[in-house]
Design a protein around this nucleic acid. Structure first.
Lengths: 207, 207, 207, 207
DNA sequence: GATGAATGAGGTTTCATTCAT
DNA sequence: AATGAATGAAACCTCATTCAT
């Protein structure tokens, strides 16, 4: 049995290695630009193993996106349940995105690049995740509207998109090294959280 | 000489057709997802002609990005020269982006997709354009700061990025059909201009 | 009429330019390695003009080879008619080859490369020239055999080949810059003529 | 480990098959005239495998030439070490070339065609091999000069070139079927060895 | 579970050739 | 006579995928 466990965890180890490698490479090169052999090389396994576990290139991406989108979605849903003003909730979302970035910058980048931007992935299956996330945010904004935190004539869809775009490009800039050339430290992230909060609370996104 | 001119303008015409087709297709499928034969088919020329004029797939993209980035950059520079409050200037930029979108939605999308996000293109040459555009916006924000239109402790770089991200995802949503499923009419665009202006003037991006 | 002549000689000029350019480029890159556009560029004319005059890539090569092979063949035939020992005649052939090299190094190289080596050209039509030249040399050797200038049991075909190979690689070495790195002057050629004569008269190729 | 070895030797086998096929085809058609698909067909593998192992057409040729040139070079070096007169050593070289031809006519042809003649290959890297071989022969001639086997004023470089050219064109003639139309038998080769020896010992190449 | 040899569809690129001007 | 725009067959090459070991 000990053997079986060892083997199993070894297997899990390989799967995880592949997944983490895939996130890294795809974030850098995009779905189309990434070769299975790139992923395998990054994971330091034979490329046949990728097929052993995932069956196809698309499945690799699907697995990644499903996992991250679900986690992301769940979190936003929870934030939606919490109490607080609209801007407070939006700030919590941006906080969460920044924290996730801190833990796994490439994953958040990949989510945005391949799902939100799209075109690269199966439009029906994956586009859905993008809309789902945006719709959840929109739900929060809608609730804020009912609570009087924004004008009653505000286009909640547009506001959600603008908000998400603002936070997302901030993250992309961090990933790409556009914002402040060097990779940000934990302290830097804390500071950016504050600054983003200030912008969000500035008025454009509600009260 | 008349002959030479005829041939020359014919050549120019084909080059333009190819370039416009490339913008269209690349915006839809991304650089890696676009095949030369797609471009040629869209331009209704033989694929050999693409090589006759541009030599390689990458050169086609380079030519497009250089052209659009330059035009974009020039326009923002001019807006920077004009007078008005910070939010007014930013609104003019978003107006310009929306108008350009109206005239050529794919081009603005491609600019964002391939230049701002990058990873697909030569990082040194093309990333530069992205930074250049962001820096110009930052210049405008900086000037607004000096004029007292935003708090003196605001991070102008971050504000620029957030602003650009908000407008850009709005455009992407239009291109992708995420925002209001159907392609927007001219009237819709006018309305979106107003709404975006309202958001920008809402307070987060200055006075 | 003056006009007509001018035009005609202009045409001839272009034809010649193309032919000379073709010899140059094909000698350097071989038949398969040479592009029509290379020839046109070297001749400084539009590539369409090559077709205007020659119709196809192969025709260009054919024209060159026919011209040079005929001239070459005629000359060897004449040497065969002259009197002298075998080695004297062979020396005259090597002299002629070196002189031709002096006037047009690439042409002699091309002759050897594409005709003697073959495989690249239509075997029936062009291989013929190669054999023709070798057979003419062999005829001279045969005559020398009858005159008692070599042993009666000598393989005249093999001797002809060995002789031709010796002279030809000497020329190739000159063309390629293998022999004495730098391009040889007229004086150098004179010296090489002497040295080759000495080798030919050394005994291996008869008396 | 047994498994790994099996796969490894399988790989080596395929690489060899491809290499041997490449020699065969390139000898017949030249570098530029050879298509990867020709090589693959001759080796009876998918063309993709050629790329799997060699990456590009040029790499295939490089690998072949390096291998054959090295072997050739080694052998000549050894002959240089042996004792005997100059003509004896040169005869051994021609013997070796003929024997190699017997074992692998295409390889010796390719060596000559692409390396000695050249122009087709990277001039810097491969031309070097050609010079190296000629220089080794020259070294032998030089030694012969010191031993008094040729006149003290002989140009050793030129003599080496003439010798190599004589032997090489003999081989080419065999390959091309110019010499005695039909492919020579082992007995024929033995005879040619003798005849060549006789020519070499005839006086032109020393005593 | 793991490897990498082998395949071939499908893309990129080259370039001889045609033809309108 | 001269040009070079336009074409597309045919080459090169990439890489997802299969499968024997």
């Amino acid at each position: 049995m000990a053997r079986g466990q060892a083997k199993e965890s070894q297997a899990r180890g390989s799967q995880d290695k592949i997944l983490r490698a895939a996130v890294k490479v795809m974030a850098r090169k995009g779905y189309h630009g990434t070769r299975i052999s790139d992923i395998a090389a990054e994971a330091d396994v034979a490329y046949g193993l990728v097929y052993h576990y995932f069956g196809s290139k698309e499945k690799v991406l699907d697995t990644i996106l499903e996992s991250v989108a679900t986690r992301f979605s769940d979190r936003i849903a929870r934030i939606g349940q919490e109490k607080g003003t609209l801007t407070e909730k939006l700030s919590r979302i941006s906080d969460y995105m920044l924290d996730t970035y801190l833990a796994n910058p490439e994953m958040i980048h990949l989510l945005v690049q391949e799902v939100v931007r799209s075109g690269n992935v199966d439009p029906d299956s994956e586009m859905a995740s993008a809309r789902a996330i945006l719709q959840q945010i929109q739900g929060i904004v809608e609730a804020g509207k009912k609570a009087g935190h924004i004008d009653s004539d505000t286009d909640t869809e547009l506001l959600s998109i603008a908000f998400f775009g603002a936070v997302e490009l901030t993250l992309t800039s961090l990933v790409q090294g556009i914002y402040r050339s060097s990779k940000p430290s934990t302290a830097d992230i804390k500071e950016i959280r504050k600054k983003l909060r200030k912008i969000i609370h500035g008025g454009s996104f509600g009260r």
